[in-house]
């Protein structure tokens, strides 16, 4: 089947199978920033925003997306013009292998949008669906706190 997807603000038509999950459709069409760590909804590497809401793209049938806006980590910023969260993750050492990073940054983005001043517990809760094996999460929490602070100052 075919459908039109809106990804990072761009409308584009993809062809896919009725049973394909969104993760595969995105990766098959060059959105490699969406990672596959387990395919079972447990690791969060494939997390995206769907109409601004954090979801695991491996747990969504592509056919059901219909008209909703998809945001991947590329939609937040790029190397030349990174988002404060992307900067903060780089500055704090929150990135080691980086395979979890796109999902982790989107989870943080979804949190800060709702809650610009999160407590440590709220940060932990918001990232509870994203596994990181490299950092022990310590520097990731720091990155979210730093980004929150910078974003509050910039507003």
């Amino acid at each position: 089947m075919k459908d039109i997807f809106t990804i990072n603000g761009q409308r584009i038509e993809y062809e896919f199978d009725e049973t394909d999950v969104l993760l595969d459709v995105l990766r098959n069409n060059g959105h490699y920033e969406v990672k596959k760590g387990c395919g079972e909804g447990e690791c969060g590497a494939c997390a995206i925003l769907l109409d601004g809401i954090l979801v695991n793209s491996c747990q969504i049938l592509a056919a059901s997306v219909r008209g909703k806006e998809i945001t991947t980590v590329r939609g937040l910023g790029n190397v030349h013009d990174p988002h404060p969260l992307q900067e903060a993750f780089a500055d704090t050492g929150a990135i080691q292998c980086g395979f979890c990073t796109p999902g982790m940054i989107l989870a943080s983005y979804a949190l800060l949008k709702e809650n610009p001043h999160p407590s440590d517990d709220e940060i932990k809760q918001a990232l509870d669906g994203n596994i990181c094996r490299c950092t022990g999460y310590v520097k990731i929490f720091e990155a979210v706190r730093l980004a929150a602070e910078r974003m509050r100052k910039n507003v």
Binding site: G44, V55, Q59, G129
Partner: peptide, 9 residues
């Protein structure tokens, strides 16, 4: 229950 991205779905 579960995790944030799953509770959202």
């Amino acid at each position: 229950s579960a995790s944030t991205p799953l509770r959202n779905r």
